Computed example of a mutant assay.
Amino acid sequence: MKKLRILGVTLLTILMMGLAAVPAMAAFDRTVLDSIILIYAGAPDKDGVMNYWRGTGFFVGKEGEKPQYIITNCHVVEDFILAGKASGGGELKVMYGKDDEEEAYLVDYDYEKDVAVLRLAEPTDKRVALMMQEPSEDMLGTTVHAVGFPQAADLTVEAVTSFSSSDASVTTGSVSRFLTESGTGRKLIQTDAALSGGNSGGPLTTENGTVIGINTAGSALDQNLFYAVSVSEVMPLLTRNDIAYGVYSEKGSSNMTMIIAIAAVVILAVVAVVIVMSKKKKPAQAQEAEGKKPIPVVRSMAAQHNGQTVQLHNQPIQIGRDPAVCRIAYRDGTPGVSSKHCQVYYSEGDNAFVVTDLNSTYGTFLSNGQRIAPNVPTKMAPKSSFYLGDAENTIYLDLE
Results as ranks from 00 to 15, higher is better:
Val32Phe: 03
Leu33Glu: 13
Ser35Met: 11
Ile37Asn: 03
Ile39Arg: 06
Tyr40Lys: 15
Ala41Trp: 08
Ala41Tyr: 10
Ala41Met: 08
Gly42Met: 12
Ala43Asp: 00
Ala43Glu: 04
Pro44Gly: 08
Asp45Gln: 01
Asp45Glu: 04
Asp45Lys: 03
Lys46Val: 12
Asp47Glu: 14
Val49Phe: 13
Asn51Val: 12
Tyr52Asp: 06
Tyr52Gln: 14
Gly55Lys: 14
Thr56Val: 03
Gly57Gln: 10
Phe58Asp: 05
Phe58Trp: 07
Phe59Leu: 12
Gly61Thr: 00
Gly61Ala: 04
Glu63His: 14
Glu63Ile: 09
Glu63Val: 08
Gly64Pro: 02
Glu65Lys: 15
Glu65Cys: 10
Glu65Ile: 00
Lys66Asn: 15
Pro67Ala: 12
Pro67Arg: 09
Pro67Ile: 06
Tyr69Glu: 02
Ile70Cys: 04
His75Cys: 06
His75Asn: 11
Val76Asp: 06
Val77His: 03
Glu78His: 12
Phe80Thr: 08
Phe80Asn: 02
Gly88Phe: 02
Gly89Leu: 05
Gly90Asp: 08
Leu92His: 00
Lys93Gly: 02
Val94Ile: 15
Met95Cys: 14
Tyr96Gly: 13
Gly97Ser: 15
Lys98Asn: 02
Asp99Trp: 05
Glu101Phe: 07
Glu101Gly: 03
Glu102Tyr: 00
Glu102Thr: 04
Glu102Asn: 05
Ala104Asn: 00
Ala104His: 04
Leu106His: 03
Tyr109Asn: 14
Asp110Tyr: 02
Glu112Tyr: 11
Lys113Trp: 02
Lys113Tyr: 03
Asp114Glu: 04
Val115Gly: 08
Val117Ile: 03
Val117Asn: 09
Leu118Ala: 12
Arg119Met: 11
Leu120Met: 08
Ala121Cys: 04
Ala121Pro: 10
Thr124Pro: 05
Asp125His: 10
Arg127Ser: 03
Val128His: 06
Ala129Cys: 09
Ala129Ser: 07
Leu130Thr: 00
Met131Val: 01
Met131Tyr: 01
Glu134Pro: 08
Glu137Gly: 09
Glu137His: 08
Glu137Thr: 06
Met139Arg: 13
Leu140Gln: 07
Thr142Lys: 13
Thr142His: 08
Thr143Trp: 02
Thr143Gln: 09
Val144Lys: 01
His145Thr: 11
His145Trp: 06
His145Ala: 10
Ala146Tyr: 04
Gly148Leu: 04
Gly148Ala: 00
Gly148Asp: 01
Gln151Val: 11
Gln151Cys: 05
Gln151Leu: 12
Ala153Leu: 08
Asp154Gln: 14
Asp154Ile: 11
Leu155Lys: 10
Leu155Gly: 01
Val157Ser: 12
Val157Lys: 14
Ala159Gln: 11
Val160Tyr: 10
Val160Gly: 13
Ser162Ala: 10
Asp167Asn: 14
Ala168Lys: 08
Ser169Cys: 05
Val170Glu: 01
Val170Gln: 01
Thr172Arg: 12
Thr172Asp: 01
